[in-house]
Design a protein around this nucleic acid. Structure first.
Lengths: 387, 387
DNA sequence: GTGAAAGCGCTAACAG
DNA sequence: CTGTTAGCGCTTTCAC
């Protein structure tokens, strides 16, 4: 790690030219086996690892794709970035190194391992991310398949601009999730490299886009709800009015109801995509005394909140009232009753995003593409299949 | 995206030298405000984004850290990497683009949204990764704090060498999880950049390392088990014999038993860290007819397998037998009964790993560090707190 | 405060 | 099959 070897060092050591070293690494069969062997051995001896930067510069391509995810709630915004400038915050590092660093001896001190009564599930961390983790995983896999490495960044409110530019300068293409990056920044970056918007249905963009079939999913679900059970009254707990997802899901609901010739009552209650709001709504419903036959929610969190209250109040789901969600988050698998929902193919989203970039790289002039991935309706106990 | 602008273009456009452009971007206050404004405006007009490669080359540092995770089970090995060579598999991309790509119209076809009866939880995807996702998230956050971007890669059995070298060439430091990279490769790479081993207690390494307190955690748990309940017979279902984690946990068990002056029977049954093996063991225990007072497992998966069988056979947990795990995976929060376990601070692991690299970058000559993070014992229903 | 010039390490023609 | 030679776009002294 002292005198990091370069092509020149390897070339010298192997008694060849730097071009040959480069060839051995890029197109091995363009070099005589013996020469190749000699070079390879020098590489080993010297501990040579080619510089990605130099490669990127010379080759005009980095072999890296970028993925911009939504920020991790809380955990970050709290602590501003260390003063970067030159040393990349190296000094700041030294400062908090002591914080979590523990010598083996200390950590093994019995007193250091707390016993926590978690019978109330209090200690559980908020899984929050899950959703994006899957996207990330899918993207990583697909990137690898296409010979790209993947660089990730989570959008932080502030300094997003810097980050985006920073990433954009290092990659051959960038996938941007939902509303993590302001439109103008996206536009700026898109002038340099292909950008694909993921699950972010901003209309009128001349930028590639991949998303899931929110509309079709909710439509299919709605049809199931009204067709399989004698639903006369239906409450829909929406998402935030400014959410494109909400818009599509709502549209799907309307279509499904129409197609299913729903003749009952539909009441729309504004929601927030939050579990708490689900609880509120359920409580109001209970207090109002007029429980509908079904409560369809714009997302799982909301539905889980509704289930929380119904369970606490002893309301029979699905016996007395049906409940549905949307997203297919893990928690819905474990709720009581288990939640009927629409599962989004998260990993597939990531893969599709990467494919979109790769395609674009191959055909820069092609018209902007829009990919919509199909979803699945998962019928579980909160609104089971027709009896 | 056509003629990607460079410093030169910006310099021309702004009527300054490239040095000034560079300054404006790196050390803004070293430039007269008016000049700065002019340059910045040119940057905007031209859609200039500095090349990370050029920057990395000239500055001898990339501002990127790498994270090497274990492969995603199955999903990958199945499909070999596209022929990379030059086009980075661009041709292969075109081939399978049609596979998942769907036009809006088609996706919205009702027939395209399948309804799946998931009352038996069959449709649920294997969450598998979860563990590493948290590490990744922690690493990303910490990297960002220190002004670094994060590059991730999942270790695939084959071509791992290529990947590692590839990543290593593009980053300033690398964190490598568990046994994802063979020792000699690690050594090779470590000659070029700082490498930190994560949760991989290979002894004798002169490489930085961060891990969790497997020993202390299991010790504390063991003491709880025997001290809080009148346990006379104990079965320990181990992990694979070659796992360093297993070794530490086993040692912790022994210490805990010793410290708690355990006078009963301890029987060790070999396990695999797999849920199936947990089921097998539980079944054997039942068939044998001599159920112990407690079954402590080397990890959560095993414990969940044990719980599966006990639940199916109507064995009362914790009434008839106590069960414990290790890891703190999400599924343990939802099992029936909920699983008492030791939670590893995954996100913290990721953060610590990044800190270790950053520290090393700041002090290349310092002795190798070893960081052991404390764990928490989560007492849940399968082995609750003392009555 | 700003410009000129010398690389950083590698790839990719182009010769031989 | 191998060597020579230009750059790739940016940072960074060193002068002015």
């Amino acid at each position: 790690m002292q005198k990091v070897p370069t092509v020149y060092d390897v070339a010298d050591h192997a008694g060849v030219s730097i071009a040959t070293v480069s060839r051995v690494l890029r197109r091995p069969d363009a070099v005589r086996p013996e020469t190749r062997a000699r070079v390879l051995s020098s590489v080993r001896d010297l501990g040579y690892v080619p510089s990605g930067s130099a490669r990127g510069l010379a080759g005009r391509r980095t072999g890296v794709l970028g993925l911009f995810l939504p920020g991790h709630d809380g955990l970050d915004e709290t602590t501003p970035p260390a003063p970067t400038a030159d040393g990349a915050g190296v000094d700041a590092a030294a400062a908090d190194a002591a914080t979590a660093t523990t010598a083996d001896a200390a950590a093994s001190d019995p007193a250091a391992t707390p016993l926590i009564d978690d019978r109330d599930d209090r200690a559980a961390p908020a899984p929050s991310g899950l959703y994006f983790d899957e996207v990330l995983r899918g993207a990583e896999i697909e990137a690898w398949r296409h010979g790209f490495a993947l660089m990730v960044a989570a959008g932080r409110g502030s300094s997003r601009e810097v980050m985006v530019n920073d990433i954009a300068g290092r990659v051959d293409g960038l996938a941007v999730l939902s509303q993590t990056v302001p439109a103008d920044l996206v536009a700026h970056v898109a002038r340099r490299i292909p950008v694909v918007l993921v699950a972010d249905s901003r209309p009128g963009d001349d930028i590639d886009h991949v998303g899931v079939d929110n509309l079709g999913g909710m439509r299919a679900l709605a049809r199931h709800v009204i067709a399989s059970h004698s639903v006369r009254s239906l409450v829909y707990v929406s998402g935030p009015a400014d959410s494109p997802d909400e818009a599509d899901r709502r549209a799907g609901l309307d279509e499904g109801l129409l197609e299913g010739a729903f003749a009952g009552d539909l009441r729309v209650v504004p929601g927030t995509f939050g579990r708490d709001r689900g609880r509120e709504v359920a409580t109001e419903l209970l207090v109002g005394g007029r429980l509908p036959d079904a409560v369809m929610c714009a997302n799982d969190q909301t539905a889980l909140g509704v289930l929380d209250v119904f369970a606490a109040k002893g309301i029979d789901v699905p016996g007395r009232v049906l409940v549905t969600g949307f997203d297919g988050i893990e928690a819905g698998r474990f709720s009581r009753p288990r939640l009927t929902t629409v599962r989004q193919p998260m990993a597939e989203l990531g893969r599709a995003a990467v494919r979109a970039i790769v395609d674009r790289l191959a055909a820069p002039e092609r018209d902007p593409q829009r990919v919509t991935l199909p979803v699945e309706v998962l019928l579980r106990e909160s609104c089971p299949p027709a009896p």
